[in-house]
């Protein structure tokens, strides 16, 4: 079985992003970039399926400018077999990404497509579900457990009320949640090996997809800052302040 994993290049999760003075966007100049954490979990899950003998090939795909090849190499170092770069100068929105992935799915015909549940920059949480609708595939989103057996995949999902399990016919889509696995670190030999693994470049035009945006960003502002409050000496003072000053008790 072939597994396709979609990975996004995003700001490193440790960085606190700042808004540009002209409010046009956030400032990403000289900011550390990384593989979206949920995508890292997606790659790990695919590689484990391969290690268990369930998958025989793990293909990673990323859409964006040339720089995303850095994250594709990371995914290859984590154990993916080959990479596809869909090159466009801008980061397209989730619907466009889903359409491009649909075209890649049509070519590659994977049995399982694994995505992150959410990109930590846009915080959209859309792409996997959109790809599901476009390809007609069933979806198991926010997965904390995935098991593949006899042409189906059973997915345990993290939902507001607790956990839900669904069973999907393959080919299917899974999006990852935090508890699905703990991604490994890439070893130095694997980082070296990854440089020689195949990485193909294609374009939206070659895939026959246009990436127009219908949602325009008018302005990006900093959120209202909370001013740091006071330190209290002990529990008695805390309770007193909550009762008499903040009046929340």
């Amino acid at each position: 079985m072939k597994v396709l994993v979609a990975v996004k290049r995003v700001i490193d999760y440790n960085v606190k992003v700042r808004v540009k003075a002209d409010q046009s966007d956030v400032d990403l100049a000289n900011v550390k970039m990384a593989l979206n954490p949920f995508c890292e979990i997606a790659v790990e899950e695919a590689v484990r399926l391969k290690e268990k003998g369930i998958a025989n090939e793990v293909v990673v795909v990323s859409i964006g400018p040339k720089a995303v090849q850095e994250q594709l190499r990371t995914a290859l170092a984590l154990g993916a077999d080959r990479a596809i770069h869909v090159e466009t100068d801008e980061m397209p929105d989730s619907l466009a990404v889903a359409k491009l992935l649909q075209a890649v799915v049509a070519k590659e015909e994977p049995q399982l497509v694994i995505l992150g549940k959410q990109a930590i920059d846009s915080d959209n949480n859309q792409t996997g579900q959109m790809l599901g609708a476009l390809t007609g595939m069933p979806q198991g989103t926010f997965a904390s457990k995935v098991s593949v057996e006899d042409g189906t995949v059973s997915v345990t999902r993290e939902v507001d009320g607790g956990l839900q399990t669904v069973q999907l016919q393959l080919p299917a889509i899974v999006t990852t949640d935090l508890r699905l696995n703990e991604p490994r670190y890439a070893s130095l030999p694997n980082i070296m090996k990854a440089k020689k693994k195949p990485l193909d470049v294609t374009t939206p035009a070659e895939l026959g997809v246009t990436v127009a945006r219908t949602v325009k960003v008018v302005k990006v502002e900093a959120p209202a800052e909370r001013s740091a409050g006071v330190k209290v000496a002990d529990v008695a003072e805390l309770v007193d302040k909550l009762k008499n000053e903040a009046k929340v008790l």
């Binding site: 619907l95 959209n124 949480n125 579900q129 959109m130 599901g132 926010f142 507001d160």
Partner: peptide
């Protein structure tokens, strides 16, 4: 924007060929 809404709404958007504005 609950886990239920987040689960099915992007499918709606894609079927209608429009973007989704989340959250």
């Amino acid at each position: 924007a609950t886990t239920t809404g987040k689960n099915f709404m992007p499918r709606v958007a894609a079927l209608l060929d429009v973007a989704q504005i989340s959250d």
